[in-house]
Design a protein around this nucleic acid. Structure first.
Lengths: 110, 110
DNA sequence: ATATCCTACAACCAAATGGTTGTAGATCAA
DNA sequence: TTGATCTACAACCATTTGGTTGTAGGATAT
């Protein structure tokens, strides 16, 4: 499985980052608007430190970045990271489509 | 983030299943050919029980199925599960493209 | 019938994960 | 200057994870 410029460890982090509903929701919210860490934390029934850890996981997966503004850290979508994640998911999807299409052809012959 | 017919728990399992290089490799191998669990186990530097656990994670994520043939369990791609996974990744990809394109437009205006 | 192979799972272990509380420093508002 | 807000991180805890070894049952080969 050839993947564009991403090591296994990076792919691990990407999928791991998305393997949690809270983190997926954070990514969705951050795509739709601008949030500070504490702004995000206010939206979830967990401690500030827990949300901070989730944001850290997303940072390590290059899905978000943080930018200091006064005492706040603004969480933003990481454009390049998102593009790379997109291409990775695209490749998986293409590989899976190819295989699924072959299975469909074989089944059609039957 | 609207996702086709998958609960948060199912999405968790899907991404978690893919958050490990060994499991990604198992999916790749099983897409390319036919393997028993012990056939797969022979390919990795870990115990049979460890590979069995990985296969179980992939089963729970509906990416593979097992089919008994004599004393062997043949691991196969789970066609419907793969399709659903594809659509999920597709949706993520589409949402991310949409956002990335908007960012690109805004940057182009600058 | 016996030996071999294949599989499932329990029990165990170390590490990682996801959450908490507490402490402390930075920045803003009054 | 002081109080409030925001953040980072350490330390802790319970659970999960990823691996192991061992046991046992089922199926195949001899």
């Amino acid at each position: 499985m050839v993947v564009d410029q991403l090591s296994d460890a990076e792919i691990d982090r990407l999928f791991h980052a998305l393997a949690d509903a809270t983190r997926r929701d954070i990514v969705a919210k951050v795509m739709a608007g601008e949030y500070s860490v504490s702004g995000l934390a206010a939206l979830y029934a967990m401690s500030f430190a827990a949300v901070q850890k989730h944001v850290a996981v997303l940072e390590r997966a290059s899905l978000v970045t943080k930018q200091k503004r006064g005492r706040e850290q603004i969480v933003r979508v990481h454009y390049e990271g998102l593009q790379r994640a997109r291409r990775l998911l695209d490749e998986y999807e293409a590989i899976w489509r190819q295989r699924a299409d072959r299975i469909a052809d074989i089944l059609a012959e039957g």
